[in-house]
């Protein structure tokens, strides 16, 4: 069950998207998010949707894999959708007791939930096609200018890559601990919320112990290899733009121009 967590997961495949420079993908994701929330009519929305479908096709990642990330937020989506549907003022369509569905509410609910779904899928396309290492390299380089105002970009990027790297390890560890405790009759599913929280103790204690031990081991391993921050550190594979990346940038800018052209004409 825990294997279904796909946040930050990488899916190995051989595609154009996998071989792009992470900076391009970060920029594209940013553009995607801005245009997604700027799309205020059905045509613009369809435009964004079609682009996303095209990108998914290019990524060679099975579609079922991307939708998996949605499972975790289904509840959130439903709640947000319902609140929008019932609590937005406007022309009344249907009424159940004190709850009423309005035209604006219905429109907002549909728009909100589909935006969130696309947002999750769009961002997971990036993480699925970019290794955590590439991603942090890309972030470090893209936000490098912040170093001048005293932000320790390297340290933050490193923390992020360690955190991402540890997600699958801790997920696996959680799975093992759950099994070990279930073998002793532990129950993680039934009971009310307080009992459930109490039942988590046999899971959380070994998990924390092991996480601290791992963190400690990692810090020793880094010190043993003379790690002392980002100052003067060189990379084995420095990020370099290729002609593929240039073409990708041209595509992104064409997309932006098309999007705003349609937006102002409509």
């Amino acid at each position: 069950m825990l294997r279904d967590i796909t946040i930050g997961q990488y899916y190995p495949a051989d595609s154009v998207l996998h071989s792009l420079d992470p900076r391009v993908k970060l920029f594209a994701t940013l553009v995607f998010i801005i245009t997604l929330f700027g799309a205020n009519n059905i045509f613009l929305f369809a435009f964004v949707l079609v682009t996303l479908i095209g990108i998914i096709k290019l990524s060679h990642v099975p579609f079922s894999f991307m939708v998996r990330g949605l499972r975790a937020i289904v509840v959130l989506l439903v709640i947000a959708g319902l609140f929008n549907m019932f609590l937005t003022p406007g022309r009344e369509l249907v009424r159940f007791g004190f709850l009423k569905i309005t035209d604006v509410g219905l429109k907002n609910a549909v728009l909100m939930t589909s935006r969130m779904v696309l947002l999750i899928i769009g961002t997971s396309v990036m993480t699925l096609t970019t290794t955590p290492n590439q991603l942090t390299d890309g972030l470090e380089k893209s936000f490098g200018f912040l170093k001048k105002v005293g932000v320790s970009v390297h340290e933050i990027a490193l923390m992020m890559s360690i955190a991402l790297r540890f997600i699958p390890i801790l997920v696996e560890e959680t799975d093992k601990i759950m099994k070990a405790q279930m073998a002793r009759g532990a129950d993680f599913e039934s009971g009310n919320i307080f009992q459930k929280a109490k039942n988590m103790v046999p899971l959380l204690v070994p998990l924390f112990v092991s996480a601290f031990r791992r963190a400690n081991d990692l810090s020793y391993a880094m010190e043993a290899r003379c790690y002392n921050g980002g100052e003067g550190r060189t990379k084995m594979r420095p990020l370099k733009y290729s002609s593929l990346d240039q073409r990708a940038y041209i595509c992104i800018f064409t997309y932006i121009i098309l999007f705003y052209a349609v937006k102002f004409v409509m």
Binding site: E173, I177, A180, Q181, A183, R184
Partner: peptide, 20 residues
Amino acid sequence: MKNLRTQVGMVFQYPEHQLF
């Protein structure tokens, strides 16, 4: 299932995974 797990006892590789 719960009864089965008490009937078929299983000790895992790392004791750290169950001591709490």
